[in-house]
Amino acid sequence: MREVLVLVDHVDGAVSKPTTELLTIARRLGEPAAVFIGSAEDADDTALKTLKTFGAEKIYTVEDADFRQFLVAPKAEVLAQLVQQVSPVAVLVASGAEGKEIAGRLAIKTGSGLITDAVDVQGDGDSAVTTQSVFAGSYTVRAKVTTGTSIITVKPNAATPEQAEGAGAQQAVQVEISEGAKGARITASEPRRSSGRPDLSEAAIVVAGGRGTGGKFESIEEFADALGGAVGASRAVVDAGWYPHSYQIGQTGKTVSPQLYIAAGISGAIQHRAGMQTSKTIVAINKDEEAPLFELVDFGVVGDLHSVLPAATEEVNKRKG
């Protein structure tokens, strides 16, 4: 069976949930082979075991000491060299900002077609058929790559991670990184402080606040915590400086597709809808009964979020007992 390369997304060795989703998807297409780029300390037993548990038959490890300080381009060279060596049926990369850049470069390097932001990938004979959600979620597109290796970036929550013990045969790979790939040097890096809440892109429940919060996010955060969800914000909130940009949902922020999306004080412009329209269940709370977002909701409350949310938080905590 031909290999399916999965680029492992990790922070200091902690393998991300989307990577386990990619491994699950890879099994539909061929033999999952994880590509772990990082230091020897990062590729520790815990990291390797996670990859194995979710079905990696092979794990290629690539020491990045020589190129860690350069942005994106070296990682695309690593993958291009592996593609040449093993002729995989597909390369799967998580759909983050970096993942998409890596995939774009890889497509050019290997003369391959590229599909981004797949929300589903299925095997069909020799090819991988993807499903994408486009035009602010108003259309569904099915597509496949027809030239070269299928290079696909996959959105978080595109599959439920399923465990399936793989052989996990580890193989260290030596790569030559060209000087040309070393033109964008990272001279400083400040890790983002963790909020202690689930990651926004991956969360099952998201509670988001908009202009209607007036900048007061306590009730949003407390309701999110009662439900075990992540906190998000509309662009208006971020532009006003009320909440950091990394929490922005919408066309120019994150696209989320959780089981439950609760929008408080968000009217629902098309750019915002683009970031949340594929959520399974949508709830809105807004003083304005004409808010366009109410057209999309499974449940809505016309009222002041500053009184509804604290009362609802209390109610949820009571029922959780």
């Binding site: 922070v11 942005l71 983050g96 900002a97 970096e98 964008a184 040097r185 990272i186 001279t187 400083a188 890096s189 400040e190 890790p191 983002r192 892109s201 990394s246």
Partner: peptide, 9 residues
């Protein structure tokens, strides 16, 4: 970025 703010030159 998602996990860090970087300066790149």
């Amino acid at each position: 970025g998602d996990t860090a703010t970087q300066t790149v030159e």
